[in-house]
Computed example of a mutant assay.
Amino acid sequence: MNDDKNVGQVIHNKRKELSLTQEDLAEKVHVTRQAVSNWERNKTVPDDSIIAVLAENLGTNIDNFVSKSNKKQSGENIMSDKENTEQSGYKVNKYDTAMGLFYAVALFIGILLALILMVVT
């Protein structure tokens, strides 16, 4: 592949060559169609665990993904966490974290009390 092509273009071109839809490819590599769409639009890159399966299903060399996705992960055109949370419209704040922790502890205590009551009775 040409070095000027990015991972998304490689995935898109190979998928089209094989006459696969995004849904078809998603089923083959056990991800969602949205994940394939995000790869092709360069919003995200495939996880390391998926790259080998993806290359095999697209009939291409794993190097077409590894070298390009490593460039992306090293900072080339990758969004920061702040940009990702701003785009999603949901910001995780301290209140959300505290409430999640509170509910987890409350659930644990409830289960523990239920077990104690079962043993006592």
Rank of each mutant, 00 (worst) to 15 (best):
G75Y: 01
G75K: 01
E76Q: 11
N77G: 02
N77K: 12
N77Y: 04
I78A: 02
I78P: 00
M79C: 03
M79F: 04
M79E: 11
M79L: 12
M79N: 07
S80R: 02
D81W: 06
D81C: 05
K82N: 08
K82A: 09
K82Y: 08
K82F: 09
E83L: 02
E83A: 06
E83I: 02
N84E: 12
N84C: 10
N84G: 02
T85R: 15
T85L: 12
E86P: 00
E86H: 05
E86K: 12
S88D: 10
S88G: 13
S88T: 12
G89H: 02
G89L: 03
Y90A: 06
Y90N: 09
Y90I: 11
Y90D: 04
Y90L: 10
K91L: 04
K91V: 06
V92E: 07
V92D: 03
V92Q: 10
N93K: 11
N93V: 12
N93F: 03
N93D: 15
K94D: 09
K94G: 04
K94N: 08
K94I: 11
Y95T: 10
Y95N: 05
Y95W: 03
Y95F: 06
Y95Q: 08
Y95I: 09
D96R: 12
D96G: 10
D96W: 10
T97V: 15
T97E: 12
A98E: 12
M99Q: 14
M99L: 15
M99D: 11
G100N: 08
G100T: 02
G100R: 03
L101Y: 14
L101I: 14
L101D: 15
L101R: 14
L101N: 15
F102D: 05
F102P: 00
F102Q: 07
F102M: 06
F102K: 09
Y103D: 09
Y103W: 07
Y103K: 07
Y103A: 03
A104G: 14
A104C: 13
A104R: 10
A104H: 10
V105P: 00
V105A: 14
V105H: 09
V105R: 08
A106F: 15
A106K: 14
A106Y: 13
L107K: 07
L107N: 08
L107C: 11
F108Y: 15
F108L: 15
F108A: 15
F108V: 15
I109M: 09
G110L: 02
G110F: 01
G110I: 01
I111G: 03
I111K: 03
L112K: 05
L112N: 05
L112D: 04
L113I: 13
L113W: 06
L113H: 04
L113E: 06
L113N: 07
A114C: 02
A114K: 00
A114E: 01
L115D: 04
L115I: 10
L115Y: 08
L115Q: 05
I116W: 07
I116R: 06
I116P: 00
L117E: 08
L117G: 09
L117V: 09
L117W: 09
